[in-house]
Design a binder for these strands. Structure first.
Lengths: 141, 141
DNA sequence: TATACAAATGATAATCGTTCTTATTTGCAT
DNA sequence: ATGCAAATAAGAACGATTATCATTTGTATA
């Protein structure tokens, strides 16, 4: 798990808001949280944080490599704990549920495409949007 | 080329602003334009359009299938003429140049992934970000 | 061709997500 | 305990986009 050390080694003081945010990501059943999500959940847990602080902390955690930021459609950024391994996302347009996947073939072809076009890949984002046909969508937003 | 018919068949009156916007996309050497881009270019061409109209028209054109909207990183939407054929994008982080590509293998694997996870694909977006290693990047933003 | 009316426009206010500012508080080394 | 740099909270500011609404413009009809 994450001790305050994680923060310290990232050059960040281990303050209350930072610990709370980290806690939330580790204990929430929802892997993908927006700044607004984090803010609201902390408030309803009785914590007294400012929205500006949430944004600041999320950005710092991203830069420290603790979180990964995603730009899904809809304008708002979504964060998740950095598991170290890259993966892409498939998002249900009906219930907002997000599943992660990794496909070696796709990754390989991307390298291929980039090389062909004379690019060096720095990053990429693949988002599939669809309908999750499972009987019970557990996550209604 | 696009005649006013295109608008009419989309259920849109062929008004001056709409024709101008369509013209711009057909005659601009830059395929990918943001709302702000369109607005500024029309103004500097002596046209007198409102920014709100540009946004409205772009959205209508997207819904009518004349344009395709992309959400690249950076917060703003970018539009391009709908060529009918799907393609993905690779964006140069240095100069902002956008290249289009289509890879059958990637498309096929996506279907595969979605099926495996119990999804029906509605849409997807694959953006590769990198450095375009060509000697002269022609498009400096 | 004149006209009438719904549809479209332009100016501006409002909204949304996010960042900035600043006075106050807090972690932590002394 | 104490001091001070770093972090915070509140709210202003911001950029992109959308909504409002009075005015204008296509276009179908007389």
């Amino acid at each position: 798990m994450h001790q305050p050390d994680h923060l310290k080694s990232a050059g960040l003081k281990s303050t209350l808001p930072r610990l709370k945010v980290l806690d939330l990501f580790e204990n929430s059943k929802e892997r993908h949280l927006s700044a607004e999500d984090v803010y609201k959940q902390l408030l309803s847990s009785g914590e007294d944080v400012g929205l500006a602080t949430v944004y600041r902390v999320l950005t710092q955690f991203e830069q420290a490599g603790l979180l990964v930021r995603h730009h899904f459609e809809g304008g708002k950024s979504v964060f998740e704990l950095n598991k170290g391994e890259h993966h892409d996302h498939i998002v249900c347009l009906q219930c907002g549920h997000v599943e992660e996947f990794f496909d070696t073939a796709i990754e390989a072809r991307q390298e291929n495409v980039a090389t062909t076009l004379g690019f060096t890949i720095r990053d990429h984002s693949l988002h599939i949007y669809g309908d999750c046909t499972k009987k019970d969508c557990p996550h209604k937003p």
